[in-house]
Design a protein around this nucleic acid. Sequence first.
DNA 1: ACTACAACTTTGAATTACAAAGTGCTTTTT
DNA 2: AAAAAGCACTTTGTAATTCAAAGTTGTAGT
Lengths: 101, 101
Amino acid sequence: MAVNNPISGLNKIFDNRIRLGVMSILTVNEEVSFNDLKQMLEVTDGNLATHLQTLEESKLIKVHKGFIGRKTNTTYAITKTGSKSFNEHIEALEKMIKGFK
Amino acid sequence: MAVNNPISGLNKIFDNRIRLGVMSILTVNEEVSFNDLKQMLEVTDGNLATHLQTLEESKLIKVHKGFIGRKTNTTYAITKTGSKSFNEHIEALEKMIKGFK
DNA sequence: ACTACAACTTTGAATTACAAAGTGCTTTTT
DNA sequence: AAAAAGCACTTTGTAATTCAAAGTTGTAGT
């Protein structure tokens, strides 16, 4: 591995802007509903659902299917692994940015 | 546009890690040869060439075909537009990051 | 009963990314 | 001088990714 490679620490799963957005939202907010994510990120529900699935399969986020009264309410939260992976990615980004600041 | 959308300021051209890497390298180093970029980023030459072409077509970088003695030497540099676009992207990223710091 | 919303899954198409091989020119090696 | 190798590509083909649209199931409201 080249020593100077500025992108070697980046996590491929976060190359996608929607997945990046989800992670950044879930880092600030403990639990966020599907619908809120959809509105914040301005994506179609199908598109969002597949990205959430990808993140869940990689154990970066977890799903909680709950209720508000009798109505189903699905919320998403970041996992420990997710926090760790995302922080590493951000650190790699910051390192890259600092390289030229 | 949603007010809270953390990814709306990101530039799609920089979603790709190789193009991101090129820009970050060219922000620190005024002129970098094709071969140096290739080694730093650890990519195949064909792959690098297409990404450089994309960046050039968008006027984010410029190519200089020169010589070292009699040997051809191609170098790449960032353009004014490129600097501006890249800085905006980085600022959007930082804003996103600061959102949860 | 009908409409609407929520949270999906499935399908299909378009775009993107990438490796591998080929090209033309030059330089170095034998 | 011939062969091998390097540089900076281009072309080709495939694999992966991304995304919108439509379909699905279940609940809620009117």
